[in-house]
Amino acid sequence: MALLEVKNLGITFGGLKAVDNFNLTLEKGALYGLIGPNGAGKTTVFNLLTGVYKPTTGTFLLDGKELKGKKPADINKAGIARTFQNIRLFKNLSVLENVKVGLHNGMKYSTVAGIFRLPSFFKTEKKMDEKALELLKVFELDESADTLASNLPYGKQRKLEIARAIATNPKLLLLDEPAAGMNPNETNELMETIRFVRDHFDLTVLVIEHDMSLVSGICEEITVLNFGTELAKGKTDEVLKNPEVVKAYLGQ
Protein backbone atom coordinates (compact mmCIF):
# COMPACT_ATOMS: atom_id res chain seq x y z
CA MET A 1 0.00 0.00 0.00
CA ALA A 2 1.20 3.49 -0.82
CA LEU A 3 2.24 5.73 2.08
CA LEU A 4 0.50 8.82 0.79
CA GLU A 5 -2.45 8.87 -1.54
CA VAL A 6 -3.78 12.22 -2.74
CA LYS A 7 -7.01 12.06 -4.70
CA ASN A 8 -8.45 14.96 -6.72
CA LEU A 9 -7.28 17.45 -4.12
CA GLY A 10 -8.39 21.03 -4.84
CA ILE A 11 -9.04 24.36 -3.20
CA THR A 12 -10.65 27.57 -4.39
CA PHE A 13 -10.15 31.01 -2.89
CA GLY A 14 -13.19 33.02 -3.93
CA GLY A 15 -13.36 32.33 -7.66
CA LEU A 16 -9.71 31.36 -8.01
CA LYS A 17 -8.85 27.69 -8.32
CA ALA A 18 -5.49 27.71 -6.56
CA VAL A 19 -5.06 23.96 -6.82
CA ASP A 20 -7.28 21.78 -8.94
CA ASN A 21 -7.51 18.02 -9.29
CA PHE A 22 -4.14 17.23 -7.73
CA ASN A 23 -3.27 13.53 -7.59
CA LEU A 24 -0.22 11.92 -6.10
CA THR A 25 0.79 8.50 -4.86
CA LEU A 26 3.95 8.19 -2.81
CA GLU A 27 5.50 4.84 -2.01
CA LYS A 28 7.30 4.38 1.27
CA GLY A 29 10.89 5.64 1.09
CA ALA A 30 10.35 7.73 -2.05
CA LEU A 31 12.12 11.04 -2.65
CA TYR A 32 9.63 12.98 -4.71
CA GLY A 33 9.88 16.49 -6.15
CA LEU A 34 7.19 19.08 -6.71
CA ILE A 35 8.22 21.89 -9.04
CA GLY A 36 6.59 24.67 -11.00
CA PRO A 37 6.84 28.40 -11.68
CA ASN A 38 6.08 30.96 -8.96
CA GLY A 39 2.41 31.01 -8.00
CA ALA A 40 1.76 27.55 -9.42
CA GLY A 41 0.26 26.36 -6.14
CA LYS A 42 3.09 24.24 -4.75
CA THR A 43 3.05 25.67 -1.26
CA THR A 44 -0.77 25.56 -1.32
CA VAL A 45 -0.50 21.80 -1.83
CA PHE A 46 1.71 21.63 1.27
CA ASN A 47 -0.74 23.76 3.21
CA LEU A 48 -3.54 21.43 2.20
CA LEU A 49 -1.57 18.34 3.19
CA THR A 50 -0.73 19.80 6.61
CA GLY A 51 -4.21 21.08 7.43
CA VAL A 52 -3.43 24.80 7.24
CA TYR A 53 -6.09 25.02 4.50
CA LYS A 54 -9.15 22.79 4.27
CA PRO A 55 -9.53 21.33 0.77
CA THR A 56 -12.73 22.20 -1.11
CA THR A 57 -12.57 19.00 -3.16
CA GLY A 58 -10.83 15.68 -2.92
CA THR A 59 -9.10 13.93 -0.08
CA PHE A 60 -5.78 12.47 1.02
CA LEU A 61 -4.78 9.42 2.99
CA LEU A 62 -1.64 8.61 4.95
CA ASP A 63 -1.08 4.90 5.48
CA GLY A 64 -4.70 4.34 4.51
CA LYS A 65 -6.00 6.80 7.12
CA GLU A 66 -8.01 9.77 5.84
CA LEU A 67 -6.61 13.05 7.13
CA LYS A 68 -8.77 15.53 5.23
CA GLY A 69 -10.26 18.23 7.47
CA LYS A 70 -8.05 17.45 10.46
CA LYS A 71 -6.25 20.17 12.40
CA PRO A 72 -2.55 20.81 11.69
CA ALA A 73 -1.51 19.47 15.10
CA ASP A 74 -3.44 16.24 14.56
CA ILE A 75 -2.04 15.78 11.07
CA ASN A 76 1.44 16.12 12.51
CA LYS A 77 0.63 13.52 15.14
CA ALA A 78 -0.58 11.23 12.33
CA GLY A 79 2.86 11.46 10.75
CA ILE A 80 3.28 14.42 8.40
CA ALA A 81 5.91 17.02 9.29
CA ARG A 82 6.96 20.04 7.27
CA THR A 83 9.33 22.93 6.92
CA PHE A 84 8.41 26.39 5.69
CA GLN A 85 9.43 28.45 2.70
CA ASN A 86 9.84 31.54 4.89
CA ILE A 87 11.67 30.09 7.86
CA ARG A 88 9.46 29.75 10.93
CA LEU A 89 11.64 28.96 13.89
CA PHE A 90 10.91 29.68 17.55
CA LYS A 91 13.18 32.70 17.55
CA ASN A 92 13.42 33.36 21.27
CA LEU A 93 14.21 29.75 22.08
CA SER A 94 17.61 28.10 21.80
CA VAL A 95 18.50 25.67 19.01
CA LEU A 96 18.20 22.75 21.43
CA GLU A 97 14.80 23.94 22.69
CA ASN A 98 13.51 24.26 19.14
CA VAL A 99 14.18 20.56 18.62
CA LYS A 100 12.77 19.73 22.05
CA VAL A 101 9.50 21.40 21.07
CA GLY A 102 9.51 18.98 18.15
CA LEU A 103 9.89 16.10 20.61
CA HIS A 104 6.86 17.38 22.55
CA ASN A 105 4.47 14.58 21.61
CA GLY A 106 7.07 11.84 21.48
CA MET A 107 8.32 12.20 25.04
CA LYS A 108 5.78 13.20 27.63
CA TYR A 109 5.40 14.14 31.24
CA SER A 110 2.52 16.10 32.73
CA THR A 111 2.39 19.84 33.42
CA VAL A 112 2.12 19.04 37.13
CA ALA A 113 5.26 16.91 36.99
CA GLY A 114 7.00 19.85 35.35
CA ILE A 115 5.87 22.39 37.94
CA PHE A 116 6.69 20.22 40.94
CA ARG A 117 9.86 18.77 39.39
CA LEU A 118 8.79 15.15 39.90
CA PRO A 119 11.25 12.38 38.95
CA SER A 120 9.56 11.92 35.56
CA PHE A 121 10.55 15.51 34.72
CA PHE A 122 14.27 14.88 35.18
CA LYS A 123 14.15 11.48 33.50
CA THR A 124 12.26 12.66 30.43
CA GLU A 125 14.17 15.94 30.11
CA LYS A 126 17.44 14.01 30.12
CA LYS A 127 16.18 11.68 27.42
CA MET A 128 14.90 14.65 25.42
CA ASP A 129 18.29 16.38 25.65
CA GLU A 130 20.08 13.27 24.45
CA LYS A 131 17.68 12.67 21.58
CA ALA A 132 17.73 16.33 20.55
CA LEU A 133 21.53 16.49 20.59
CA GLU A 134 21.71 13.32 18.56
CA LEU A 135 19.45 14.91 15.96
CA LEU A 136 21.42 18.15 15.98
CA LYS A 137 24.61 16.17 15.39
CA VAL A 138 23.15 14.83 12.14
CA PHE A 139 22.76 18.41 10.95
CA GLU A 140 26.07 19.52 12.47
CA LEU A 141 24.23 21.91 14.75
CA ASP A 142 25.27 20.38 18.07
CA GLU A 143 28.00 22.99 18.53
CA SER A 144 25.43 25.78 18.57
CA ALA A 145 22.84 23.98 20.71
CA ASP A 146 22.64 26.86 23.19
CA THR A 147 22.53 29.65 20.61
CA LEU A 148 19.26 31.50 20.13
CA ALA A 149 17.60 30.23 16.96
CA SER A 150 17.37 33.77 15.57
CA ASN A 151 21.16 34.19 15.88
CA LEU A 152 21.95 31.25 13.61
CA PRO A 153 23.17 31.94 10.08
CA TYR A 154 20.57 31.44 7.37
CA GLY A 155 21.69 28.03 6.10
CA LYS A 156 21.77 26.60 9.60
CA GLN A 157 18.29 27.96 10.31
CA ARG A 158 17.01 25.92 7.37
CA LYS A 159 18.74 22.84 8.72
CA LEU A 160 17.31 23.44 12.17
CA GLU A 161 13.81 23.55 10.70
CA ILE A 162 14.38 20.13 9.15
CA ALA A 163 15.76 18.81 12.43
CA ARG A 164 12.73 20.12 14.29
CA ALA A 165 10.37 18.49 11.79
CA ILE A 166 12.18 15.15 12.05
CA ALA A 167 12.01 15.36 15.86
CA THR A 168 8.24 14.84 15.60
CA ASN A 169 9.02 11.36 14.27
CA PRO A 170 7.08 11.67 11.00
CA LYS A 171 6.50 9.13 8.27
CA LEU A 172 6.32 11.79 5.60
CA LEU A 173 8.52 14.89 5.51
CA LEU A 174 7.50 17.89 3.42
CA LEU A 175 10.35 20.26 2.58
CA ASP A 176 9.37 23.64 1.18
CA GLU A 177 12.30 25.07 -0.79
CA PRO A 178 15.03 23.78 1.52
CA ALA A 179 17.82 25.14 -0.70
CA ALA A 180 16.45 28.67 -1.08
CA GLY A 181 19.21 31.21 -0.50
CA MET A 182 21.97 28.61 -0.31
CA ASN A 183 25.16 28.65 -2.37
CA PRO A 184 26.06 25.62 -4.55
CA ASN A 185 28.32 24.13 -1.89
CA GLU A 186 25.62 24.36 0.75
CA THR A 187 23.09 22.90 -1.68
CA ASN A 188 25.32 19.89 -2.33
CA GLU A 189 25.73 19.39 1.37
CA LEU A 190 21.97 19.66 1.84
CA MET A 191 21.36 17.01 -0.82
CA GLU A 192 23.59 14.62 1.08
CA THR A 193 21.75 15.43 4.30
CA ILE A 194 18.31 14.87 2.77
CA ARG A 195 19.37 11.50 1.39
CA PHE A 196 20.93 10.58 4.70
CA VAL A 197 17.88 11.44 6.80
CA ARG A 198 15.60 9.59 4.42
CA ASP A 199 17.61 6.39 4.91
CA HIS A 200 18.54 6.95 8.54
CA PHE A 201 15.07 7.93 9.83
CA ASP A 202 13.12 5.73 7.44
CA LEU A 203 11.29 8.67 5.88
CA THR A 204 9.44 9.48 2.73
CA VAL A 205 10.29 12.94 1.44
CA LEU A 206 8.27 15.31 -0.71
CA VAL A 207 10.25 18.39 -1.66
CA ILE A 208 9.36 21.68 -3.34
CA GLU A 209 12.37 23.23 -4.99
CA HIS A 210 13.38 25.76 -7.59
CA ASP A 211 17.01 24.72 -7.65
CA MET A 212 17.10 22.27 -10.57
CA SER A 213 20.48 20.85 -9.55
CA LEU A 214 18.93 19.71 -6.30
CA VAL A 215 15.80 18.39 -7.98
CA SER A 216 17.66 16.39 -10.62
CA GLY A 217 20.25 15.38 -8.03
CA ILE A 218 17.99 13.73 -5.48
CA CYS A 219 14.40 13.39 -6.72
CA GLU A 220 13.58 10.08 -8.33
CA GLU A 221 10.27 11.32 -9.68
CA ILE A 222 8.62 14.73 -9.92
CA THR A 223 5.34 16.45 -10.60
CA VAL A 224 5.24 19.82 -12.36
CA LEU A 225 2.47 22.21 -11.38
CA ASN A 226 1.38 25.20 -13.44
CA PHE A 227 -1.58 27.47 -12.61
CA GLY A 228 -2.76 25.00 -9.99
CA THR A 229 -2.97 22.03 -12.32
CA GLU A 230 -0.64 19.17 -13.06
CA LEU A 231 1.45 19.81 -16.16
CA ALA A 232 3.65 16.73 -16.19
CA LYS A 233 4.60 13.83 -14.00
CA GLY A 234 7.15 11.02 -14.08
CA LYS A 235 10.86 10.25 -13.98
CA THR A 236 12.83 13.41 -13.20
CA ASP A 237 15.13 13.64 -16.25
CA GLU A 238 12.30 12.77 -18.67
CA VAL A 239 9.96 15.37 -17.23
CA LEU A 240 12.62 18.07 -17.23
CA LYS A 241 13.13 17.50 -20.98
CA ASN A 242 9.38 17.76 -21.67
CA PRO A 243 8.85 20.78 -24.01
CA GLU A 244 5.67 21.80 -22.11
CA VAL A 245 7.63 22.04 -18.88
CA VAL A 246 10.43 24.04 -20.46
CA LYS A 247 7.84 26.40 -21.92
CA ALA A 248 6.13 26.89 -18.56
CA TYR A 249 9.42 27.69 -16.89
CA LEU A 250 11.11 29.81 -19.49
CA GLY A 251 8.17 31.21 -21.44
CA GLN A 252 8.00 31.10 -25.21
Binding site: P72, F84, L89
Partner: peptide, 14 residues
Protein backbone atom coordinates in the same frame (compact mmCIF):
# COMPACT_ATOMS: atom_id res chain seq x y z
CA UNK B 1 6.72 29.81 24.23
CA UNK B 2 6.68 28.10 20.85
CA UNK B 3 3.10 29.32 20.38
CA UNK B 4 4.24 32.85 21.25
CA UNK B 5 7.15 32.73 18.82
CA UNK B 6 5.32 31.17 15.88
CA UNK B 7 1.85 29.77 16.14
CA UNK B 8 1.79 28.17 12.70
CA UNK B 9 5.10 26.40 13.19
CA UNK B 10 3.98 25.33 16.64
CA UNK B 11 0.87 23.67 15.20
CA UNK B 12 2.99 22.06 12.51
CA UNK B 13 5.02 20.18 15.12
CA UNK B 14 1.87 18.88 16.77
Amino acid sequence: MSIRDNRIASESVG
